[in-house]
């Protein structure tokens, strides 16, 4: 047998086929999304060039748009031009900066990714151990404390948390900058702002998953072999419990991107999130469209990566 994905021991699809299948569905979904954007923008009453340029735009700008998007041509040709442009990453020219949208996006992307990595790491490093502790002390005072922290963290509006952190660390204590970028110090508050939500969430799901795994039959088998509760928790339960946690953390990447939009705005962090908000406020539609497309692409790629990672950590779904 060649490369094979197995689910419960049965081969399902060859690994390569599976990978291409996923890439294909990913592409179809993205085409669907940009088609939706296309339809929405054109369904707004009025001249689409005028809508895209914004109410304040000069006649010159409007004509530029009309030309750029081929708006004089029939709608299906417009649509294909639009698709072709997107998939060659020709995302148009920004009204605001007059430079190609893609350049601006690539300049901002590393900052957003940096923030995503630091906050995910912070959240995982603290969230998983705390979740395990909550599960192993189930019903105790520590569990109550951690559960309260967890639900509060999930309910906390991220924009308010960011402001409160500025109030404490920048206004009162004056030890951390309230915004900007450039030094590691600038990274701390935005990271904490995003990480807290994620961490609260990870505590919650880790606890649930560990408790669920502890009730499985193999735990009784392990006990009957003479293993101690502690060994069972670390050697048997944890590995089982963390598999779903990894997947869910991958899915939370979406919430993380949403959080990045807000956090970057609060801390004047020069990332993609702040770019999108600035562009909406200045009615820079090519930039808005381009950033949304890149966000969707990023989200899809992370989901794909999570799926592939999953096949490595769960022996039940594995390359043969």
């Amino acid at each position: 047998m060649g490369l094979c994905y197995t689910v419960g021991g049965k081969p399902v699809l060859s690994a390569l086929k599976y990978f291409f299948y996923r890439l294909l569905t990913l592409a179809i979904t993205l085409i669907g999304l940009v088609t939706l954007i296309f339809i929405l923008i054109r369904s707004i009453p009025g001249d689409p060039a005028r809508v895209l340029a914004g109410m304040m735009a000069s006649e010159e700008d409007v004509n530029l748009i009309r030309e750029q998007l081929g708006l004089n041509q029939p709608i299906y040709i417009q649509y294909f031009i639009y698709l072709k442009n997107l998939f060659t990453l020709n995302l148009g020219i920004s009204f605001r900066t007059d430079s190609p949208v893609i350049n601006e996006i690539f300049a901002r992307l590393p900052n957003t990714l940096l923030l995503a990595v630091t906050s995910t790491c912070t959240a995982v490093i603290f969230g998983i151990p705390l979740g395990v502790i909550a599960a192993s002390k189930k019903g105790g005072k520590l569990d109550f404390l951690l559960s309260t922290f967890s639900i509060a963290g999930i309910s906390l509006p991220i924009y308010w948390l960011g402001l409160i952190l500025i109030l404490i660390f920048s206004v009162e204590l004056r030890i951390l900058p309230a915004g900007g970028s450039g030094t590691p110090m600038h990274l701390i508050l935005p990271t904490l702002t995003i990480a807290l939500y994620l961490m609260a969430f990870i505590v919650k799901i880790t606890k649930a998953s560990v408790i669920d795994s502890m009730e499985k039959n193999y735990v009784i088998t392990a006990k009957s072999k003479g293993l101690s509760e502690r060994t069972i928790l670390y050697k048997h339960v944890l590995k089982n419990a963390l598999i779903p946690v990894v997947t869910i953390i991958g899915l939370q990447f979406g919430a993380l991107l949403g959080g990045a939009v807000i956090t970057e705005t609060i801390f004047a962090w020069p990332g993609l999130g702040r770019l999108i908000v600035d562009s909406i406020n200045s009615r820079d539609y090519p930039m808005v469209q381009g950033s949304i497309f890149i966000f969707a692409l990023l989200y899809a790629l992370v989901n794909l990566a999570t799926d592939i990672l999953y096949t490595f950590i769960d022996p039940r779904v594995r390359l043969k």
Binding site: K216, N217, Y218, I220, T221, A222, S224, K225, K235, H236, K239, N240, I243, D314, P315, R316
Partner: peptide, 16 residues
């Protein structure tokens, strides 16, 4: 003293 369980599929740890 040892024990053999009824369900062999759930009695073994799936990821070990």
């Amino acid at each position: 003293i040892s024990i053999i369980f009824q369900e062999p599929s759930s009695a073994l740890n799936p990821v070990m």
